[in-house]
Design a protein around this nucleic acid. Structure first.
Lengths: 117, 117
DNA sequence: GGGTTACTTAGGCATATGCTTAACCAATTG
DNA sequence: CAATTGGTTAAGCATATGCCTAAGTAACCC
């Protein structure tokens, strides 16, 4: 439970970088080796590897090395936690705004039916 | 369009910190002044203000100062972009996995109806 | 007007991040 | 087996981050 805080940290932090999101976008269309992920990025291969490490640490990507090629793939489940956190906030404020709306509505009703002005 | 990259950066980065998420969680339940947002956090008020600045820069929170009290509120629309980005990735890989499933299914069909080993 | 409250600004420090180049290792390939 | 390809490790540097304390400003309260 407490560990989920750190997990959300890693998750959102991993997605907060354009190079890493580009990797995720590429991997959403299918697995790819490290070199292919790095090629379009404006940085050296070691730099790209570090980004990949961040994505793996966040659990968003897994990889397996066969021969000298490391093939990376997306880990769909990992995105759920981030989506859930946002969705939970949304339900909170929607509930609150609903209640506020009802309250305002009840005021209007009261006004119509009670004292004028 | 290009600007959305930086916007996603700011959005995910803003959510990648437990203090900032705590503020968002509090604000999801209703508006609050700066001091109330800062009180539960294990840091000084100026530090908390910086976090608040990050949330505002990301568009997740807006605030208005009346008298000497700055009241903060959540900006529900801002979360949409983050959710949309994740949802877009999800559709990509689901589409792909569907196609893969169909392909594997067609292989099975072909095997059943064609040569037996 | 003097004290308190609520925030704001400024300066500074310690650590973390993001990148680089250089060197290294291990699997192919001619 | 030498050269190439794909990846990895190491060292180092420049900048950004996250926090602090101290000092300042502006509204409200007696």
């Amino acid at each position: 439970m407490l560990n989920q805080l750190a997990e959300l940290d890693r998750l959102f932090h991993a997605l907060a970088d354009p190079a890493r999101r580009a990797m995720v976008e590429r991997l959403s269309r299918g697995p790819a080796p490290v070199t292919e992920l790095a090629r379009p990025l404006p940085m050296s291969l070691p730099a790209a590897m570090q980004h990949l490490g961040v994505l793996e640490a966040a659990g968003l990507v897994r990889s397996e090395k066969i021969g000298r090629v490391r093939t990376c793939a997306i880990e769909p489940k990992a995105f759920g936690l981030a989506e859930q956190w946002i969705a939970a906030r949304r339900t909170e404020w929607e509930l609150r705004l609903d209640r506020l709306g009802e309250y305002l509505h009840s005021l209007e009703e009261g006004e119509r039916d009670g004292s004028g002005d």
